[in-house]
Design a protein around this nucleic acid. Structure first.
Length: 117
RNA sequence: CGAGUUGACGAGACAAUCGCUGCCUCAUCGUGGUACUUUCGAGUAUACGGGUGAGGGGGAGGAAAGUCCGGGCUCCAAAGAGCAGGGUGCCAGAUAACGUCUGGGCGGCGUAAGCCGACGACAAGUGCAGCAGAGAGAAGACCGCCGAUGGCUGCUUUCUAUUUCGGUAGAGCGUAGCACAGGUAAGGCUGAAAGGGUGCGGUAAGAGCGCACCGGGCGACUAGUAAUAGUUUGCAGCAGGGUAAACUCCACCCGGAGCAAGACCAAAUAGGAAUUCGUACGGCGUGGCUCGCGUUGAAUUCGGGUAGGUUGCUUGAGCUAUGGAGCGAUCCAUAGCCUAGACGAAUGAUUGUCACUUUUCUUCGGAAAAGAUACAGAACCCGGCUUAUAUGUUGACUUAACAC
RNA sequence: ACGUCCGUAGCUCAGUUGGUUAGAGCGCUACCUUGACAUGGUAGAGGUCGGUGAUUCAAAUUCACUCGGACGUA
């Protein structure tokens, strides 16, 4: 059954969970977005967000980007393998439109799926 | 109708689909507690916490921002005393409090509505003012003016002495000159600033030296709670400029830290080793000092080890309505309402329709196309201030021109 | 979230009881020295003192607001 739910179980919550991803990541990227990926053993996919204040200055823009990423992850999660991933963002992302962010993310999802087949 | 001033409110709407978050109700699952039954396996009931599902209703701001003030709350001792330090600064009021607000005063800007003002004291004391300039604070004579008085020189005349009878010398009066002593702050020059202003008189020239008016000072009176005001009145020619966002003085206010405060649960700070000081006139306890109060051996080094969860957390100086008091800020009474509580951090995404602005077309009903949708995201909570902001609705007021 | 501090030349810093003109080192430019380079020497350019306003005769310095940056607190 395919669900589009997005609960606390599908997020990275503690610093140690984040550290696991940062230790030995596989990198995927586009012009404005970098994603670090590690496979996990919990039979689950988990998303973490690292949107630095240094890269995106205004809180409104940071929130907007995070919502877009979560929304895209929520809609595409059932296609993904069991991985932990952290999404990072480069400077200038706050000037992108919502649909541009979504296009970039969808490209990266496809790359990850291919890599893990 | 144009231009403007000022206050209040708003900050796109609706629908569908897919989500997030916490609240309520119901169903269900499992577990611990309590009561009852028991064949000691368990079963039933109950309330609460937890998981899952369904339904319902709620979910960012006017500035949530800057962190510039003030308060609540929490801990430091129950928050105390003095000093230091800091803040505020016309008067009165409002308030939990304020650097805020309201009303009034004074000054400035504007035709006006209205707006702006860190607006106590420099006559308590100390300090500062480069360069320029004569002089910078009980000032000063550089140019200029005068030179009455005194001095020097000349002339007229009078007197005295002397005489070679032409004069000569001295003294006095008058007068002309010099600018030597000196007088003078009206004018010039310098500067941001030069010790009341204008006029007349006056004088050697001038000067509050005298007078008139204006301005200012001190006191009285009147009005006002007061700041302050006055076509009131008396006094004295004027009394010393600027700077306190210079030290300072005066009045009033302020103990320190902050929800990463603090509390609870589990773990942990353990147990150790070495050195030094000390055994109470000491050390520590928030940050400045002294007192006071509380508590008690302290410091350094080596080695070892943690930083998870719950709570604080949203019912509050709360909001709405009505009535009353007050010019107003605001306050009082009654009734009703509950309106975000997240924590690697929710409050969203997509699509459609309408609404907004501009342009074009128009049968003046509207239609089409394009564009824009600001500033910006709660993190303990309030009251303000300040800064950012596309734009909409509306109240009151001022004013030019025109029309009546 | 709360708290503290800092902005001066291209870089690193001086300079603040308000006073004439904002200075040092490195770097930069030109010339001299060398066959050439380095070194050395001489000269020169380069500053809205983060911004706006206020106080004052006068502000890098004092005050208010504002912009940017750094650090600390579990």
């Amino acid at each position: 059954m395919v669900t589009n739910q997005f609960t606390r179980e599908s997020r990275l919550l503690t610093p140690s969970q984040f550290q696991n991803v940062f230790k030995k990541p596989i990198r995927f990227g586009s012009s404005h977005i970098t994603i670090l990926v590690t496979s996990n053993t919990d039979n689950n996919k988990r998303l973490g967000l690292a949107i630095a204040k240094k890269r995106v200055k205004l809180a409104v823009q940071r929130n907007r980007i995070k919502r877009q990423i979560r929304e895209s992850f929520r809609l595409n999660q059932h296609q993904l393998p069991n991985i932990d991933l952290v999404v990072m963002v480069k400077s200038g992302t706050d000037t992108l439109e919502n649909h541009q962010i979504r296009q970039q993310l969808e490209k990266i999802w496809r790359k990850i799926i291919q890599r893990h087949k």
